[in-house]
Write a protein that binds this DNA or RNA. Structure first.
Ligand code: FES
Ligand code: FES
Lengths: 144, 144
DNA sequence: ATCTATTCAGACATAAAAGTCTTAAATAAT
DNA sequence: ATTATTTAAGACTTTTATGTCTGAATAGAT
């Protein structure tokens, strides 16, 4: 995975939630067990996502987490930016140089297209797209 | 920078060497001072690069480092792979799934094009390209 | 031969990421 | 009301990345 473990866990947990009935609550423990990821760590990640209004939670018995809105309305850029410093992807390939109008890209530097491609992917895709990818694999019966 | 500090230092040190006369030796201290990066850390990085035959070194007085071949012959993929696990960039956006012929990409998953773009950039560019980028900036008198 | 500048090798130190644990607060069921 | 279950918050531990230091090996200069 190109991103950190925290982001990987976040995306997988969100896809999991997207696959559940939209309104029922899913406990951290339940999600962590289903996905085989560290429960307490996931708890902290879900709290970060809650603060950014990507998931909602309720406490106490029968509490848990659910998506704050429909999967198609949850953009990947918004999710990933919670846990990653996406500014990293706005710089040139070999240093901290950030190309702007005042500081234009070298005409030679084809890296500019690459970084726009990465950022653009996140901006143009949502959780619903990841759900479809997972569905595609399941249809082909591809093992984990 | 998309990669680690070690890779950033490596690429910058190599561009620095590319800008020097091809045959003279450059001490770690000299490179580190010129680029304002930690000297001892750079020393270890250069040793990694030496083991992969990207630079050559000689010890003792007037010793130092130089490129093992012409900048155009030093591919970025080879350099970066010394310090990064590039396998990370062969996987899907949200998990450790690695698409192969047996495990094909989802038709929905446009991430495949992105990761091929990243890897392709490294495979199709060399130190000479980075040198040109640096030259472009210098010509425009763009501040660091 | 000796001195000195340099890489080489590896131990050590610090910072950040990843993961664990504990306790408190909230809430539904009993 | 009590209890069981769950999130919330933060301290703590472990692992990895980053950075520092020391001493030995090497080789040019004197
Ligand atoms: S991305 Fe390299 S100069 Fe802009
Ligand atoms: S990159 Fe996502 S399915 Fe291949």
């Amino acid at each position: 995975m190109i991103y950190s473990k925290a982001t990987e866990y976040a995306l997988n947990a969100l896809v999991y939630l997207a696959e559940q009935a939209p309104d029922d609550r899913n406990g951290v423990h339940q999600i962590a067990d289903a996905l085989d990821i560290p429960g307490h760590f996931l708890g902290k990640i879900l709290q970060d996502l809650r603060k950014e209004k990507i998931v909602e939670s309720s406490r106490g018995r029968s509490g848990g987490f659910r998506l704050a809105r429909a999967p198609a309305e949850i953009g990947l850029y918004d999710v990933v930016s919670v846990l990653e410093d996406l500014q990293r992807y706005e710089m040139c390939i070999f240093d901290e140089y950030e190309c702007t109008v005042d500081r234009p890209c070298s005409m030679v530097c084809e890296w500019n297209a690459v970084k726009n491609h990465i950022t653009g992917f996140l901006q143009n895709h949502s959780l619903a797209d990841l759900q479809m990818v997972r569905q595609f694999r399941a249809d082909l019966d591809i093992p984990k």
